[in-house]
Amino acid sequence: MNESKLTREAPREAPALLPPVDVIEDAEGITLYADLPGVSKERLTVQVEADTLTLSGEMDLAMPQGMAATHAEVTLPGYRRVFTLSKELDAQKLSAELKNGVLKLRIGKVAHAQPRKVQIKVD
């Protein structure tokens, strides 16, 4: 699985920030960390549809009345990122955890996709 296959921008939707992610693969599955500051558990959506994984979240922006922005680096109120999962990943084995604005997503591999050591016989 290479990077270009894993990352893909969502077509025709409201503009959203692309959250930075780390993706790590080990023998049993894939772990994804995504920075989603300002998103509470209630406003975060993790969706798997066929082989497409969509992360989206809206920020809780409670700003004081009459505030005028003087400097803005975060200019959109939400995040979205779409990934294409490969066949050996099992959407049933998915767990998500949100802490301090970081989403940790764990996707397990289907049993037969886990590596097996092939014994080489010497005659």
């Binding site: 992610v21 780390d22 993706v23 790590i24 693969e25 080990d26 023998a27 894939i30 920075d35």
Partner: peptide, 10 residues
């Protein structure tokens, strides 16, 4: 044996 596919976070 772990592989890092994407590394973007600070």
């Amino acid at each position: 044996k772990d592989t890092v596919h994407i590394e973007e976070r600070f």
